[in-house]
């Protein structure tokens, strides 16, 4: 099975403090992969670097072997929900329609085909009956489903989701997991930052343990060992902290010979 996403030597800093260090990973296609780790581990930054929202100090990415610019259409990114202005005067349907804009030039309007894709996406995500509501009228779970619908409207192959299950009710969570598993069966690759270690094995086939460094990656049934979890969530944090502090204080960064 080839790799949907490959990352090589990713380094991200924020104000001289390392956020991600020496990350090299690959995620196989047609998988549902979880990125787990403690708070501040750099999980969101990893996704943001993949789609170019953060400029890393170093790092190469490839998606199905190609550069991101060639694959923009194929990648759908769903940010964390709190980054949105909920008072914006916009309806659910209009948000989902934005998923088509990547395929349209700036002067083009949505045609019948696009509308059908939008309808379909809303139906899959279960938000069709909400389509004319203003977005602040939705519950947390409904908001998440709306953004999933937007991602679906993109008709992408790779879905990058940042904490898709945070702050939503149990039934929505189950519905979304079913939806994602169906998408994977249809050929998609899903990568999600996940906050709940206890559900990783049930929801995800593949797991990446992250704490500024990549601790382990592999099948979720193999890789979630006690030792790996310990390395990710506890123990060597003090060494890592001291190291990060030393970098910040000395403000040194690798230079090329």
């Amino acid at each position: 099975m080839s790799a949907a996403i490959t990352v090589n030597n990713l380094n991200v800093r924020y104000n001289y403090a390392p956020v991600l260090s020496d990350i090299s990973l690959s995620i196989p296609e047609q998988n549902m992969a979880a990125i787990i780790g403690p708070n501040g581990a750099g999980k969101s930054s990893l996704l943001k670097s993949l789609v170019g929202l953060i400029k890393p100090d170093s790092g190469e990415f490839s998606f199905f072997g190609a550069n991101i610019e060639k694959q923009r259409m194929n990648i759908a990114y769903v940010a964390q929900r709190q980054e949105v202005d909920w008072d914006f005067p916009i309806t659910v349907r209009e948000v989902v329609e934005m998923g088509r804009f990547g395929h349209l030039s700036w002067w083009q309007r949505l045609d019948k085909k696009d509308s059908r894709i939008v309808d379909n996406a809303m139906q899959m995500a279960g938000v069709t009956n909400l389509q004319n509501r203003q977005i602040s009228e939705l519950s947390g779970g409904q908001q998440q489903r709306m953004f999933v619908a937007r991602a679906l409207a993109q008709q992408a192959n790779i879905y990058l989701l940042d904490e898709p299950f945070a702050g939503i009710d149990v039934s929505t969570e189950k519905a979304l997991v079913e939806l994602f598993k169906k998408l994977v069966k249809q050929g998609a690759t899903i990568v999600a930052v996940h906050h709940d270690v206890s559900t990783v094995k049930d929801y995800f086939d593949y797991a990446l343990l992250l704490n500024q460094y990549l601790i382990a990656q592999g099948k979720s049934t193999d890789v979630l060992t006690d030792e790996n979890l310990k390395k990710t969530y506890t123990a060597q944090e003090s060494v890592q902290d001291s190291y990060n502090m030393a970098i910040k204080q000395k403000q040194k960064w690798p230079i090329h010979d």
Binding site: L53, R72, I75, V84, M98, F101, G102, W106, R150
Partner: peptide
Amino acid sequence: CWNRLKATLFSTNSMQAIG
């Protein structure tokens, strides 16, 4: 530019992510 304006003013990051 109605579509673009509405989309980029609402969700700058997500639109940036799709190019």
